[in-house]
Design a protein around this nucleic acid. Structure first.
Length: 406
RNA sequence: GGAGGGAUGCCCGAGUGGCCAAAGGGAGCAGACUGUAAAUCUGCCGGCGCACGCCUACGAAGGUUCAAAUCCUUCUCCCUCCA
């Protein structure tokens, strides 16, 4: 049963190699020895989003099959920074920050993994013990030529962009993590392929049986093009408010629907196939399918009730154009007003932080995005007399209910 | 050590004296439409008591010029080739 679920999850993944995986699973069943499954985490970005959940859910499946699961916080490697075109030096996190981030991780992954059966490990716990010679030793295990096989390095080398030698250490250290815990399986995104392969190679060097790699596809973010990532701002975080998760999900491209269903949801295999078929054959309205997806996702991370509520709210606000049931209360300071108790609308929008600058406010006004108590206001010179409970709306998503101080 | 190339707005990327707040694309935002915060179309997209005005902005600091992202000097960082 659980094995089936795992297999379903693995359908979209690239595995190196399937045969080895089956062999390991079989052997584990025979000997009763659980497999060690590793997933590396970046200590600087502790917000888990739907993209992260893809490998995490595979991990959960392994957990349910009673294998041993290791989350490795790369606090030591984090000091180097994963090679990227940005080549920005990553700022070093303090011990406290690392711990705080780890705690956040723990809290978040508990929504997916079984926390009692999850080993959370810091890779500084071994690397901090290392002497200089140990690092040099490690460096003898890999060649520059092989390093340059990495797409990113190869491209940068070809294009004449900088690659520091330090960057070569990143895959080495991350790979060594697998040696340190004697991983049987390592999970990761497709973009981690090179690093994971280094792990395999290093294990061989250190006389271990190389780990099996399970690389999950990268989930496109809400922009539908680039992979979901926090820095691109196209992510749906599992810790976000239900309304946010619901709304952001509704904003993904219809094209992405099937992919999201496959990669992020917990529908049973048969159910999932049915939904996908209906979408592909046009039997279910894309909007309805997306609502189902949105509801399901909210329910996964916030429970059914929140999902119902989020859907209702969404329908009210966006389908029917009604006001949200809850609006942030914004306080109008008495000193903003002139003798007759008025203020020009642009200043008010700015002071209430409904717009980021006065120019922005002017633009919104010009574009007809501003409503006061449901009345569209377009005149830039409008002065208003703020009254308690007055409702100001900017665009589709920004609302404020006013209150006035003395 | 020598020779050459480069640094542009949130990102990518054009621009080599005025027409440049800076092409184009992406992202973002708004409006219309709708089936949704989808798609599509249109518009906006540095700031400012802002309709033609001013300020800030093209790695940094100076300079030439009526006028500089564009020319000169110095500096910082990056890259390539040779050694």
């Amino acid at each position: 049963m659980e094995q089936d679920k795992l297999m379903t999850l693995l359908e979209t993944a690239e595995i190196i190699s399937r045969e080895e995986l089956l062999k390991k699973l079989e052997k584990s069943k025979e000997t009763g020895q659980p497999l060690k499954v590793k997933l590396g985490l970046d200590p600087s970005a502790p917000d888990i989003h739907l993209g992260h959940t893809v490998p995490l859910r595979i991990m959960r499946a392994f957990q349910d099959l009673n294998h041993e699961v290791y989350l490795i916080i790369g606090d030591f490697t984090g000091r180097i920074g994963d090679p990227s075109e940005k080549a920005e030096t990553r700022q070093q996190l303090t011990q406290e920050e690392v711990l705080a981030n780890a705690r956040t991780y723990e809290e978040q992954f508990s929504k997916i993994l079984n926390p009692d059966k999850t080993n959370l490990v810091f890779n500084s716990s071994w690397f901090n013990e290392w002497q200089t010679e140990d690092f040099l030793q490690l460096a003898t295990r890999y060649t520059v030529a092989r390093m340059l096989e990495r797409d990113d390095f190869a491209r940068r080398y070809r294009e004449g962009r900088p690659i520091t030698i330090l960057e070569f250490f990143y895959p080495l250290l991350q790979g060594y993590d697998s040696v340190a815990i004697k991983a049987d399986i390592e999970l990761g995104g497709m973009d981690q392929k090179f690093n994971l392969l280094v792990g395999r190679q290093l294990q061989r060097e250190y006389g271990q049986t190389p780990q099996v790699l399970i690389m999950s596809p990268l989930l496109e973010g809400t922009d539908g093009v680039q992979k979901m990532s926090k820095s691109l701002g196209n992510y749906i975080g599992i810790n976000e408010a239900p309304g946010q998760i619901y709304g952001k999900t509704m904003s993904i491209d219809d094209e992405l629907l099937v992919r999201y269903f496959k990669l992020t949801t917990d529908f049973k295999t048969r159910e999932l196939e049915k939904i996908i078929k209906e979408i592909e054959e046009g039997k279910i309205h894309p909007m309805e399918a997306k609502k189902l997806l949105a509801r399901h996702l909210v329910a996964m991370y916030h429970g059914d009730e929140a999902a119902q509520a989020a859907e209702k709210e969404f329908e009210n606000v966006f389908s029917r154009g009604e006001l949200p049931s809850q609006m942030p209360e914004k306080i109008v300071q008495a000193e903003w007003l002139d003798e007759s108790g008025e203020i020009d609308l642009i200043s008010l929008l700015y002071k209430l932080e409904l717009v980021e600058s006065r120019s922005w406010g002017r633009r919104m006004l010009k574009q007809g995005a501003v409503y006061i108590d449901g009345e569209r206001v377009k005149d830039q010179d409008t002065r208003i007399c703020p009254k308690p409970s007055m409702i100001i709306r900017v665009g589709k998503r920004r609302f404020a209910r006013l209150s006035v101080t003395q």
